[in-house]
Nucleic acid binder design. Structure first.
Lengths: 228, 228
DNA sequence: CGACCATTTGATATGGATCAAGCGATGTGG
DNA sequence: CCACATCGCTTGATCCATATCAAATGGTCG
């Protein structure tokens, strides 16, 4: 059954938020991580691992938000994914990390050694299967992200808002953990463009912006039509 | 104990050749596909599977080239990947295909039922492992593709040329199976822009264009610097 | 209150899209 | 074998969405 080691403390100490309903996954893989992983704290902007380092560990977010990114030669930064509580990351069958990972906010993360996991997978077919499913989900996300990057700026921002709302499980209001720069680097836009799109949506009463990190979706239909 | 070996590379000489002489790939998964798969011919532009259809089969290209793509609501087409001889595709842990697949050229493809493969994976840990590796490789490709899409047009085209040269294993000359439209849809550009970049490279003697499908890389250093 | 950083807003520049010919292959029927 | 249609590619002219540059505003923390 679900082992929730460290969960309560995670929730009370997370700088960020009261948590949603049931974010922590409970499949064989997640259970293994929760049983055998060690909780570790990362403060805002701390590096969890760096690009090119050997991928020795697998992670699950307990609280806070994590970004996976890559710095391009011209200095730009492409964020490949945000990981929220319950999400697992850091191990995709490769020897080395191709992205770096950092805490967006103070975050508590479960860490489990790769060896531990692969040893388990060798004997437990369900864990092996779950690892595959996990990578498959990452792949689906990456492909959706790819599709996103070719769209117009309003479409990208609308997609981001809906994606975040769904993942946070919130009804209407999203509390964003990340800065405009993070959003811009995720969407392949500039902060100015992200900001402009948000104010444009606000002017159209599609969203409201009580503060720059809180966004209220007032008219999802309009956003969904954009995403289409 | 599981061991991760690097990605298997698909080595082919020219994708026009009807057949590979050598065994195409030789890991446990590829061997299973080659032993139990049925060869099937698809003529140019024939559909192999459609988006949304149940992902019942797994495929390996024997000859020719295949594209995986998605049509967006606005009618644009995003090509997610090209598959060359030796490459496997069509099964990534999901129940349904999220892309469609078509033959770019006349192509021979091995087809194996998903059930056959998952049954095998349940008893053969090595096959299960290779399935994971395969999805991991697809993920790495998708992430590289994502990075690509944010770059400038010259960078994208240069990246495409180098990628193709490497995958085809050609020294200097690439024989492209795909049209300019295919390239454009892969890179998120228009055919006009792709064409202009190619002629620009040609003017700079970075490449030569003996015919529109044959491209000679005359100065890889320049291309690599662009990709950086 | 004042300094600092993030965000918004405004003005201008530009890379690639779009619109529009032209050109060069490939194929077909006479 | 040629005339001609067709299709894919290249080239040119213009437009527009977003980047870039610059400044103002707002929010946070000492």
């Amino acid at each position: 059954m679900l082992t929730e080691t460290g969960r309560e403390s995670a929730f009370s100490k997370a700088d960020n938020e009261p948590r949603q309903k049931e974010p922590i996954a409970s499949d064989a893989l997640a259970r293994a991580v929760q049983r055998m992983g060690a909780a570790k704290w990362f403060s805002r902007n701390a590096e969890i691992y760096g690009e090119g380092e050997p991928a020795d560990c697998f992670y699950q977010v307990l609280s806070g938000t994590v970004r996976a990114y890559k710095i391009l030669i011209d200095g730009r930064r492409q964020i490949g994914a945000f990981y929220l509580p319950g999400d697992m990351f850091g191990l995709e069958a490769g020897e080395k990390h191709i992205f770096s990972a950092e805490a967006v906010t103070n975050a508590e993360v479960l860490v489990i050694r790769r060896k531990t996991l692969t040893a388990l997978a060798a004997s437990d077919i369900e864990v092996a299967h779950r690892l595959w499913i996990h990578t498959g989900n990452e792949l689906r996300r990456a492909r959706n992200h790819l599709l996103l990057i070719n769209k117009s700026a309003p479409e990208r921002v609308a997609t981001f808002l809906l994606e975040m709302a769904e993942r946070i499980g919130s009804i209407d209001e999203i509390k964003l953990a990340m800065s405009r720069q993070d959003i811009a680097d995720y969407l392949g836009l500039t902060i100015e463009t992200v900001s402009r799109m948000l104010t444009r949506f606000e002017s159209a009463s599609t969203i409201a912006l009580p503060s720059c990190k809180r966004i209220v979706l007032r008219n999802r239909a309009v956003l969904k039509r954009l995403v289409a």
